[in-house]
């Protein structure tokens, strides 16, 4: 069943790159672009980004996050328990798995519910929208912070184990 493991790893990488790529897009490109657009008096503003780009980016973002986690869980297979229990050598991939799991919960439990208010998919007045925008922004920044060690531990489980022994 080596082919199955390869397919799981492939899907994990494809979905993971889509997820984290969009996370970095939000943090490195969209957030500063929106700030610049809002500060640009007389400019076109950021409404077009919110209306046309954000819903599509969030669609791929949240589903890629789920697919990444499911493919990662499948890939762990019998090591799932020992990884999440941070036992022995599996503590390395386990730390990555814990960070990825917290990030997934952040996407579906904090970022997406708040972005629904920003997008107008959930009723909210202007004050609630502003609060939701700030909460989603900070949750997205927290996920960016967590992604840095997460990627190290994911990579270190196959390459660089010696660093931890």
């Amino acid at each position: 069943m080596e082919w199955l493991s390869l397919v799981e790893r492939w899907v994990h990488f494809l979905a993971g790159i889509t997820w984290i790529g969009l996370l970095y897009y939000f943090n490195l490109v969209q957030a500063p672009a929106m700030a610049a657009a809002n500060a640009d008096q007389g400019g076109p503003g950021g409404a077009g980004i919110t209306k046309y780009v954000l819903p599509r980016a969030l669609l791929w973002f949240r589903w890629a996050a789920l697919v990444t986690w499911l493919a990662g869980a499948a890939l762990l297979g019998e090591r799932f328990g020992s990884a999440f229990a941070l036992q022995g050598q599996d503590a390395i991939i386990g730390m990555g798995a814990w960070l990825g799991t917290i990030m997934l919960l952040n996407v579906w439990g904090v970022i997406w519910p708040n972005q629904k208010k920003v997008l107008g998919l959930k009723p909210a007045d202007d004050a609630a929208k502003a609060k939701a925008r700030r909460t989603a922004f900070l949750a997205s920044r927290v996920n960016t912070v967590l992604s840095i060690p997460m990627l190290l531990f994911m990579g270190a489980s196959s390459h660089g184990m010696a660093l931890f022994s």
């Binding site: 022995g88 992604s147 060690p149």
Partner: peptide
């Protein structure tokens, strides 16, 4: 005090610091 997460460099540095802390934790577990 300004929230480090409001700046992209504050976010990246926070991630690097967390990486160092967690690497020490994991090294203790392996």
């Amino acid at each position: 005090m300004k929230n480090p997460l409001d700046s992209i460099w504050g976010t990246i540095i926070s991630g690097l610091v967390l990486t160092a802390v967690l690497a020490v934790v994991v090294a203790g577990l392996v």
